[in-house]
């Protein structure tokens, strides 16, 4: 899986979770950029990402990831395990 593919699928996940078809993601996208991305939605998002990529994101990563770029890196790392 390439990084581009990860971003493509991630964009779909984000659009479904936040009910917003206009969301465009980049490496530097953070919760500041998406209105509804608060601490509750963060968990819903993580769970949706886990389902989409059939991975398990460790708790430590859940609390420390800073932007979508980091999220993509974690997905790549976890799905190659």
């Amino acid at each position: 899986m390439t990084r581009e593919e990860v971003f493509e699928r991630l964009t779909d996940v984000f659009r479904t979770v936040f009910d917003d078809e206009t969301i465009e993601l980049s490496d530097s996208t953070t919760s500041e950029d998406i209105d509804d991305w608060d601490s509750f939605e963060h968990i819903n998002l993580i769970v949706a990402v886990e389902e989409e990529f059939s991975i398990n994101i460790p708790m430590g990563e859940v609390t420390t990831m800073k932007n979508v770029g980091e999220m993509a890196d974690i997905i790549l790392a976890e799905s190659s395990k």
């Binding site: 601490s39 968990i43 993580i46 769970v47 708790m59 859940v62 609390t63």
Partner: peptide, 16 residues
């Protein structure tokens, strides 16, 4: 509380 209580609770299997 968010990092050590809420996230683990929300991500627990039962809650999900």
């Amino acid at each position: 509380a968010k990092d050590y209580i809420m996230y683990p609770v929300l991500k627990a299997k039962k809650t999900l």
